[in-house]
Design a protein around this nucleic acid. Sequence first.
DNA 1: CTACTGACTAATG
DNA 2: ACATTAGCCAGTA
Length: 106
Amino acid sequence: MATTAGLPGPRDEAVLDAVATIPSGRVATYGMVADWVGTGPRQVGRTLSRFGGGVPWWRVVRADGTPPPALAADAWAHLVGEGVARTRSGTRVDLAPAAWHGGAAR
DNA sequence: CTACTGACTAATG
DNA sequence: ACATTAGCCAGTA
């Protein structure tokens, strides 16, 4: 059983903690969260895919304000319910007013 | 150790 | 707006 870790490491917990700090109605990009924890954006996505079940993962979107295609439906359901603004196309979040800046540096 | 993969980002055509 | 390429970090085989 030790072949597959399956358990969150210190980097994973750092990512989950950072995402948990995002307040309702706000969103952050993978790059922002990655910067707070001092890692790369790909690591944030990988962690949320495995352990994102305990944090508001829908508040983490891509750099252009669009959630991943596979999660768009679920993500929008939460984002709209929290009052997040979206563009006229309705395909992406309006990052300017919704972007959250906090994380580790404040 | 190397190679592949992934809920990413930015630049280029 | 879309597709492709390169760079990036961590995990798994």
